[in-house]
Design a protein around this nucleic acid. Structure first.
Lengths: 133, 133
DNA sequence: ATAAAGCTTGGAGTTGTATCCAAGGTCAAA
DNA sequence: TTTGACCTTGGATACAACTCCAAGCTTTAT
């Protein structure tokens, strides 16, 4: 059993974050010491690592809550459920990526058209473009 | 001179947004009617369009404040200043894009490894991966 | 003349993901 | 034994960019 600071330190997060996850139903440490200190079991630590891995993959905390639900009773679900979630997230990411590429390209075009020199910005093509498209 | 609702409507935003921009120093309508209604001149409308265009290009409101400062006294700046801002934003976007592509690819790999069928998720490779990497 | 639509202000609420703070209890080391 | 590190709780704060609300005034349409 580890105390909150130990587990947090071991996982590179802060105790506050762990309490935050608890408040939001992501990770409920099973035990408390006689004086009320949270005590995390190896299973709790395992679950935290699950959360952090999912987060690193781009899942939101509410996605993760859902994944944990599935994980908690795998037999109630089928592979298609899980794969569906992952693919939905891929699509979501793809949409954002496309949008950001669009923005990046617009900006790059803008930058390319600008001399970028020490000339006064009075005739700056970037500002002109923003002013009147 | 247009009233707030007219200008907002014409630009596809809400009056509240215009007041928000004003409170945040992005757009101060020059005039008020005798009864205190905001009145926007064509220049104000022009500036709003500048703001909205910059926003559509991915600039944050604080970026836009900076661009407006430059725009307001172009002669105090050189092209390099402006181009620098745009290129910094391109880099910022690129960093985010790279990160999101990394996430997308990880998730795609995860999805590809899953049968995605009607089988119980008991042996789901996605959950297994998140559980123990 | 009256009702609906529009305007004003100050301030609160939203979303997501934490992070920080204060007041107080506990524990280990020097 | 005292100091300092750690723990508890509830609640405040942060960020971005709005969005909404209430109470009250003005303008417009019928």
């Amino acid at each position: 059993m580890q105390r909150i600071g130990e587990l947090a330190g071991a996982c590179g997060i802060k105790p506050d974050t762990l309490r935050f996850y608890e408040k939001n139903g992501l990770l409920n440490p099973v035990n408390r010491s006689p004086k009320g200190y949270r005590l995390y079991s190896e299973e709790d630590a395992q679950q935290l690592r699950f959360i952090l891995r999912a987060k690193a993959m781009g899942f939101s905390l509410s996605d993760i809550r859902e994944l944990l639900n599935i994980e908690a009773s795998r037999s109630d679900w089928v592979c298609a459920d899980v794969k569906g979630m992952v693919e939905a997230k891929v699509d979501e990411l793809q949409t954002k990526i496309d949008e950001m590429i669009r923005l990046r390209d617009s900006l790059q075009t803008l930058a390319d058209a600008c001399c970028g020199g020490a000339e006064s910005a009075i005739h700056c093509s970037i500002l002109d473009t923003l002013e009147t498209k």
